[in-house]
Structures are given as structure tokens and as C-alpha cells.
Design a protein around this nucleic acid. Structure first.
Length: 354
DNA sequence: AAAGCGGGGAT
DNA sequence: ATCCCAGCTTT
């Protein structure tokens, strides 16, 4: 096994001073966040999953509610997936919740309910990738492992003037090498969290507050004056757009038809009002072909736009009634809708209900 | 290596 | 509008 490194820190870089300046700053200004009250690995774990691609202020209420409902791994392991998804409702990236649930059940079954502190065991748990692995090992178990996220890549690209494209998977290895060379072995938790806090509060994507930066004297990009040109990141392509009818279908009792989405793919295992591609010639005929039931459409509602990171849905509400049962889903009264987990796009559709 | 996977906040 | 956010899994 070859042990090649892709990066060496500059000879004149004072590692110890950098660590000290960063950690001292972090210990002084760190925010009082609910997952920072102790080192419970389960709490750290849940917080790190929720924080993936999600901002701190968004996560806080979800985290508090989640820990109240599932205080320990045993509580979460025993829960129904639909209840876990309900707790995640509106947070997005729902596979995070399903993978966390799977992994916690595994911890209860295979590790006696103790979150493993072993790198390999932890890495094998569903939903724990390179970042979350490092975050849990360093924050919960004080191990000097890198936790490379978007903040850390931005900060490090500026401090060391790295011009590699951070959108490329290959570049992750470079930043892993960088952090391994400079991470504090005395306090890896504060070091990693300090880097992220720095990226969130000072070393921001636009208009970084370099005049307030605790590591300004260590920053190569600042000395060159081109910190706002870093990091280099290639653009992603824009979303594909699709037109749908959002079908609000009632039976003779006035109950509403909803169905559970497939267990794979977008919004997996969440519930929905049927979405009918607008390309079909007739909604009634399409529904009879797909669902084997006759419906009667009678009016249209407002138009809804929902933007995902990779697709855009434009949905025009259409109201319909049926005298048949529809086997692929269920009819529920209005007041029971809230018992099911729906994605936000479906809440936009529900605004058309009286 | 690239694509799929949500939703919200900042500018 | 565009970018970004305490990324991971699948292909």
C-alpha cells in the first residue's frame, strides 16, 4: 500500500501558532448550540446528519424535537420509519433519516447500543461518510481525524492558496492531507469545529470578514489579496423542468386520496397527492389506465412551482371526484392528513384545500 | 467520476 | 437568479 501525499504545508507555516490562534478564538466565540452541551456520541451523530447541506438555524428546532422524541439510540431503534420521517418532515434529503434509522438499529443489535469509536466500524454504518466519520471521531471521541466539509475546504483553500476545483471528488484527498498535517492532536474537537465556525462566521463565501479573522496572519490568500477568488468551484448544470397536474381527488365521503411514494428515489417513502404528467391527453383516461378507477375532474386550482436542487416541478391543481376505491393508496379525512409525512411540495398543493 | 437527492437562507 | 449550506449513496 502506497502512502502518497498530495500536499505539503509551506516550510514557513507555523502549525502550532495556527492551531493556537484558531482554538483560542473558537473557545471564546463559539455559539451555544444544543448539540454542544455534552459529548454524547448519539447526539453528535444526529446533529451531524441533520447538518449535512443544512444550515445551523434550520437544524436547531428539528434537533431539539428529535432528541426529545428519541433521547437514546434505543428509542430511535424501536421507532417506526414513518414516525422518523414525520420528525424529519420539511428538512429534506430524507434518505438521511432512513439511513440514520437503519444505522442506529445496527448499533443496538451489533454494538450493545454503544456508538462505536472504532474508525472502521463507524465508517460501515449507513449514512456515515468521510465527513461525518471525522466529525464524530473528533467531537465525540477526541480523535485527531479530519472532518472536511464545505467550510473547511473554503478556509483551507484560502489559508494555503489552493486552486484545485473543490467540486471534484479527487480534491477531497488533497484537503484531507492538508488537515492531517495541521490538525491539533491536543484538541482535535475544537480544531475541527473552529475551522467550521470560522467558515460559517468569518471566512464566508462572499465578503469574508478578514479584518476579524483570528488566522489572518497565517493566510496565504489574504497576503496575496485574492481571497475572494477562492475556492475554485466549477458550476453545476441547471435543473430540468416538468409540468404536472396535482390531483386532489375526493370520494363520496369527501375523503382525500393520498399515496405513498416508492421506497427508492426522490422523496422516498413520503406521501403525496398524485402528480399527473401534463403531457397526457386526458387526465381521466390516464388515471383509469394507471389506477384502474374512474374519476371525474371538474375544476382547476392555482399553479404551484417547486424547485429542488436538480429538478423543477410546475404543478397545476386539478380537482376530481370518484365513486370507486383506489387500491394503490388510501382515502383519509382532511384532519388526518397531518399524521402522514409529506414533503414541502405537497404542502404547497394542500394550500388548495379548504 | 458523475449523478441523484431537499429545502432554506443570503445576496 | 445564483450560490451556498457541518455530504452520502448509487451508478
Amino acid at each position: 500500500m502506497k502512502n502518497s501525499t498530495t500536499f505539503s504545508i509551506p516550510v514557513l507555516f507555523d502549525v502550532h501558532s495556527f492551531q493556537h490562534d484558531l482554538i483560542t478564538w473558537y473557545s471564546k466565540i463559539k455559539r451555544d448550540l444544543p448539540w454542544r452541551v455534552n459529548q454524547d456520541p448519539y447526539r453528535i451523530w444526529v446533529s451531524e446528519i441533520m447538518l449535512q447541506q443544512t444550515q445551523v438555524d434550520t437544524v436547531i428546532p428539528y434537533f431539539n424535537h428529535f432528541m426529545e422524541r428519541y433521547p437514546t439510540v434505543y428509542d430511535l431503534a424501536e421507532a417506526d420509519e414513518q414516525d422518523v420521517l414525520k420528525s424529519w418532515e420539511g428538512l429534506g434529503y430524507y434518505s438521511r433519516a432512513r439511513n440514520l434509522h437503519t444505522a442506529v438499529k445496527e448499533v443496538v443489535e451489533n454494538y450493545g447500543g454503544q456508538v462505536p469509536s472504532d474508525k472502521q466500524e463507524l465508517k460501515n454504518l449507513k449514512g456515515i461518510g468521510p465527513y461525518t466519520l471525522g466529525a464524530i471521531l473528533s467531537i465525540a471521541f477526541d480523535q485527531p481525524e479530519p472532518a472536511i466539509d464545505g467550510n473547511v475546504m473554503r478556509v483551507m483553500s484560502r489559508v494555503f492558496h489552493i486552486e484545485e476545483d473543490i467540486a471534484k471528488p479527487k480534491t477531497k484527498k488533497l484537503f484531507d492531507d492538508v488537515v492531517r498535517e495541521v490538525i491539533s492532536h491536543e484538541d482535535p474537537s475544537s480544531f475541527n469545529q473552529g475551522l467550521m465556525e470560522l467558515g460559517a462566521l468569518i471566512c464566508t463565501p462572499q465578503k469574508p470578514k478578514c479584518d476579524q479573522c483570528p488566522v489572518q496572519e497565517h493566510c496565504l490568500a489574504y497576503s496575496y489579496g485574492n481571497q475572494t477568488d477562492l475556492p475554485i468551484k466549477s458550476k453545476k448544470k441547471k435543473q430540468k423542468q416538468t409540468d404536472y397536474f396535482g390531483l386532489i381527488l375526493q370520494n363520496e365521503k369527501g375523503e382525500l386520496y393520498i399515496q405513498k411514494r416508492p421506497e427508492d428515489g426522490l422523496l422516498a417513502n413520503l406521501w403525496e397527492f398524485p402528480l399527473v404528467p401534463k403531457s397526457v391527453p386526458s387526465v381521466e383516461e390516464w388515471f383509469e389506465t394507471e389506477y384502474g378507477a374512474q374519476i371525474m375532474t371538474h375544476s382547476k386550482g392555482e399553479k404551484v412551482r417547486h424547485v429542488f436542487s436538480h429538478v423543477i416541478w410546475d404543478i397545476e391543481i386539478i380537482f376530481a371526484t370518484t365513486e370507486s376505491n383506489v387500491e394503490s393508496g388510501i382515502f383519509v379525512p382532511l384532519e388526518k392528513l397531518k399524521e402522514y409525512p409529506f414533503p414541502n411540495v405537497q404542502y404547497k398543493i394542500m394550500k388548495n384545500l379548504v
